[in-house]
Design a protein around this nucleic acid. Structure first.
Lengths: 233, 233
DNA sequence: AAAATTAATATGTAGCTACATAAAAATGTC
DNA sequence: GACATTTTTATGTAGCTACATATTAATTTT
């Protein structure tokens, strides 16, 4: 064992986090200055700075110039979710991935999609419905709108072979993303496509992307009953 | 305006991110060495390092010693959710918060709860059901199990006055957290407590915490129909 | 006493150096 | 030629200095 292993910034971060968790520094408390912590832990201020930056980002502390560092009083539970390409997700479960295009039509943007994009007037959009299958059983049903103004290339993509999901991720960068989760009741076409009993509860992931101010796409991905999304931490 | 504003690490990060988005660096590409980027952008390698660390954490690039930095081929959609204390959440919507204890019983850990905690044998746990209200209407129904071994203090807390949710957040630090989302059908007691139509789809947040290897608590929070959780970005 | 100015202070940022570490490439050995 | 060893290289980390910036505290001015 080393006489004294010098601390890396992650080490400092973990130490401070531990102290916050065990109430050495209680919610609302002011932490010592970076310099003092550095002196105590035997490292440089830069190291403490790096650690604090991380804790601040994680929502555990709040920093203010001159004001010092405080432990947040209402620590929010912050969870990070990775939402992979559906094919990836299926394959990672060790299942066989398949994909079926259900419909593909050029339509004018309906009101609710305009709302999601935050745009004022309708435009020509490609409306795509498709089904992702795991081991030949329905897995996720997606209902997608793609703006043909920002993404005209999509019109020449053969969506029977490649999912819009995948094509967009690979070819269309976005600058802003909005994700939300909700639950919906299985009814009509949705239930039928997913082979889910009518009335069962389905998990919905809604994703909307923009490039600059221009809409790219918005999807409602409805998962089969029992679907669960877990955080990485 | 400055002749040449030197770049902060966030500036470098944004520049690199922009290049990845506009395909200057395409998925799979190897980026130049930190040093070269630094030379190009007129900053120090440390600055580039800091920027790259952030991009790596965000899942946009992958770095390997000696191997260099590569743009990730399958950029994951990474979304961060803040899950606040329920009272906060209600109050932030400008609604009046109320809370009702439904039941509070000492029970032996049922199998499914043992599974959530990842423990082998049952122990004495406090089983609490409670309802959070917004403007006197049901908002979230929580079904919680608290391990009395790790958290004996909970037994002397008056849960009719303070919700276990709040007490735990304020008094019980945790070291590990697991969060998952799913959907469930409104039935029986659940539907009744939430005044939700039987058969409607409800959004469920499941949270489990540990302190070291010891379980603290696990909750299933079932929200009223229409509840939606959105990412911060 | 109120307002304006100045000083002090804690964090934020950037640059430099030096060395650690992992992994690939090159070299040497059998 | 197969395997082991050394070298090279790109990132990772830490320390130091210097200065920027925001905000509070102290001081001066009116």
């Amino acid at each position: 064992m080393n006489v004294e292993t010098r601390m890396s910034w992650t080490g400092v971060r973990d130490e401070i986090r531990a102290r916050i968790l065990n109430r050495t520094y209680a919610p609302g408390d002011k932490l010592p200055r970076d310099e003092d912590i550095a002196a105590e832990l035997g490292c440089a201020r830069t190291t403490v700075q790096r650690a604090m930056q991380d804790l601040s980002l994680a929502g555990l502390v709040e920093r203010k110039r001159k004001g010092g560092t405080h432990v947040r009083t209402d620590p929010v539970t912050r969870a990070t979710f990775d939402i992979p390409i559906t094919r990836r997700e299926v394959e990672q479960r060790g299942a066989k991935y398949n994909y079926q295009l259900i419909s593909r039509e050029l339509e004018e943007t309906p009101i609710e999609v305009m709302a999601r994009f935050g745009i004022q007037r309708p435009s020509r959009m490609l409306h795509v419905k498709a089904l992702h299958l795991a081991d030949n059983r329905p897995y996720i049903l997606e209902d997608r709108w793609i703006d043909t103004t920002s993404t005209p290339e999509i019109l020449s993509v053969d969506l029977t072979r490649e999912s819009a999901n995948e094509w967009l991720v690979r070819h269309k960068p976005y600058s802003r993303l909005e994700v939300s989760f909700s639950a919906v009741k299985a009814e009509g076409e949705t239930a039928k496509h997913l082979s889910a009993p009518v009335g069962s509860a389905l998990f919905v992931i809604e994703r909307t992307t923009w490039i600059g101010p221009a809409p790219i796409t918005t999807v409602q991905a409805v998962a089969v009953p029992g679907y669960q999304l877990s955080a990485r931490n």
